[in-house]
Every structure is written in structure tokens, then in C-alpha cells.
């Protein structure tokens, strides 16, 4: 199953490392990353594959949210379907 990870917040050292480590710990494979920093505002969007992940997606969402809060970032993971539904016919 594919999902989208988004990270939004103030740029700081180690954001990508932290998110990637957490995903790797749960066997979530990163398929694609785009990232921009505009006037210190950090935005990263990742396409990931969660088929090898043993935890339910909701639990991963909680872990990412917690990790984000610790750094003052908004980090979320959502099933890709929601974006496809809204932006593709």
C-alpha cells in the first residue's frame, strides 16, 4: 500500500534523517522525495510503500505525529488514495 508522508515546519538540522530513520525502523520503503525550503519554511513530501510494515498505518501516523511535535513540525502519513480521489478523475 502506498502512502504520502508530509513534513511541514521550520527548517532545522536532521529532519530528513529523523523521518527516514523512523520509517526504516518500521520497514517502510521510500519511493520518492521532494523537498523545498522557502524562507526557513521546510516542506517535504514523500511517497512511501508500507506493504512490509507490520504496524497499522494509524499507529505509524501517531509515531510520526509525536516525532513531529518534539521538533515543532507537522508530520503526517496518509494513504495515497485520498489525494488521488481529490485530484484525479
Amino acid at each position: 500500500m502506498k502512502a504520502i508522508v508530509t513534513v511541514i515546519g521550520k527548517d532545522q538540522v536532521g529532519i530528513i534523517a529523523a523521518v527516514c530513520t523512523l520509517l526504516a525502523e518500521h520497514s517502510i520503503n521510500i519511493l520518492d522525495i521532494t523537498q523545498t525550503v522557502l524562507q526557513e519554511n521546510f516542506t517535504m513530501v514523500m511517497l512511501v510503500d508500507t506493504s512490509a510494515c507490520s504496524l497499522p498505518l494509524g499507529d505509524i501516523a501517531d509515531l510520526l505525529d509525536k516525532a513531529g511535535q518534539a521538533r515543532g513540525l507537522s508530520i503526517r502519513i496518509q494513504r495515497e488514495d485520498i489525494f488521488n480521489a481529490m485530484h484525479r478523475i
Binding site: 511541514i8 523545498t36 489525494f83
Partner: peptide, 11 residues
């Protein structure tokens, strides 16, 4: 493939 703009629009 979804682009960043679309994803961030939903967020």
C-alpha cells in the same frame, strides 16, 4: 503521479 502542490493543497 501526484505533485507537491496537489498534496499540500489537500493538507
Amino acid at each position: 503521479m501526484l505533485n507537491q502542490h496537489e498534496i499540500l493543497q489537500t493538507i
